Amino acid sequence: DYYKILGIPSGANEDEIKKAYRKMALKYHPDKNKEPNAEEKFKEIAEAYDVLSDPKKRGLYD
């Protein structure tokens, strides 16, 4: 669930989505986080943001 990945409610607005994305992206960026699964988690976060930040894609997802 993209909302769960970003840690936001399904009714989140654009600003909340952007803030959550930035926070999670910094936390899991492969250059900052050396955990083995950090890169995979970072890709999931980027995919979630891509879908939820685009009103058309978000509409299809919801």
Score class of each variant (00 low, 15 high):
A25L: 13
K27P: 02
L26S: 13
G11W: 08
E14C: 05
D50N: 12
K57C: 03
E39Y: 08
L6A: 01
A48P: 02
F42Q: 14
N37H: 07
L52N: 01
E44G: 13
E14Y: 12
D1S: 09
I45P: 00
G7Q: 13
S53V: 07
A48V: 02
K43I: 12
N33A: 14
P30I: 11
D50P: 01
S53D: 01
K56Y: 08
A38M: 10
I45F: 04
D31T: 13
K57P: 03
D1T: 05
K32F: 02
E16F: 02
E44F: 10
L26E: 08
Y2S: 02
K43A: 15
I5G: 02
H29W: 03
E14G: 05
A12T: 07
N37T: 06
K23S: 14
E39Q: 13
Y2E: 04
E44D: 10
A25Q: 15
L26W: 07
A48Y: 00
A48M: 00
I45Q: 00
E47L: 06
L60G: 12
K27V: 10
N33T: 15
I5C: 10
A46I: 06
G7L: 03
E14F: 07
M24N: 03
E35T: 13
I45D: 01
R22L: 15
L6Y: 00
Y49C: 07
A46S: 14
K56I: 08
D50R: 10
E47K: 14
N33P: 13
K23F: 07
I5T: 08
S53L: 15
I5P: 01
S53H: 01
Y61I: 10
D15W: 04
G11K: 06
P9G: 07
K23D: 15
K18W: 13
S53A: 11
G59S: 08
H29F: 08
Y61S: 15
G11A: 07
L60W: 07
L6Q: 01
Y2Q: 05
D15T: 05
P55G: 09
E35I: 08
Y61A: 09
L60F: 07
Y28T: 02
I17Y: 00
D50M: 12
K18E: 14
D62V: 08
L52A: 02
A38Y: 13
K32E: 04
E39P: 15
L26H: 14
V51M: 05
K19Q: 14
E40Y: 15
Y3T: 01
D15M: 04
I45N: 02
F42R: 10
Y28N: 04
N13R: 08
N37R: 10
Y21F: 03
L6V: 01
Y2V: 00
P36R: 07
P9T: 08
Y28W: 12
K27Q: 15
E39K: 13
E16D: 08
F42T: 10
I17M: 06
K23E: 15
K4L: 08
A46D: 06
N13W: 00
Y61R: 09
R22C: 13
D1V: 05
K19A: 14
G7E: 07
A20D: 01
M24G: 09
Y21A: 08
A48R: 00
K56M: 05
E16P: 00
L52P: 01
I8L: 12
Y49N: 12
I5R: 04
Y28D: 04
K56C: 04
M24W: 12
R22T: 13
K23N: 12
P9N: 07
K4I: 03
I5S: 08
Y28A: 11
E14H: 10
D50Y: 02
Y3P: 03
A25F: 12
K43Y: 07
A20C: 05
I8A: 07
Y3D: 01
D50W: 02
K27I: 14
R22E: 15
E16Y: 03
E39I: 09
E14W: 04
D15P: 04
F42S: 10
K43D: 05
V51K: 15
E39F: 09
N37Y: 06
K43T: 13
S10C: 06
M24Q: 08
D62E: 05
N13M: 06
A12D: 03
Y3K: 00
S10M: 13
S53F: 01
Y49S: 04
K19Y: 11
D50T: 09
I45G: 03
A25S: 15
S53I: 10
A48F: 00
N13H: 09
H29Q: 04
Y28R: 06
D1N: 11
I8E: 00
Y2D: 03
K27F: 13
I17Q: 01
R22A: 15
Y61L: 08
Y3R: 00
L6P: 01
N33G: 15
G59C: 07
K56W: 03
E44K: 08
A46W: 08
E35V: 10
L6H: 00
N13D: 02
K56A: 09
Y2W: 13
K19I: 14
E14V: 11
N33F: 09
K27E: 15
I8M: 04
I17A: 02
E16G: 03
L6I: 03
Y2T: 03
M24E: 13
K41T: 09
I17N: 00
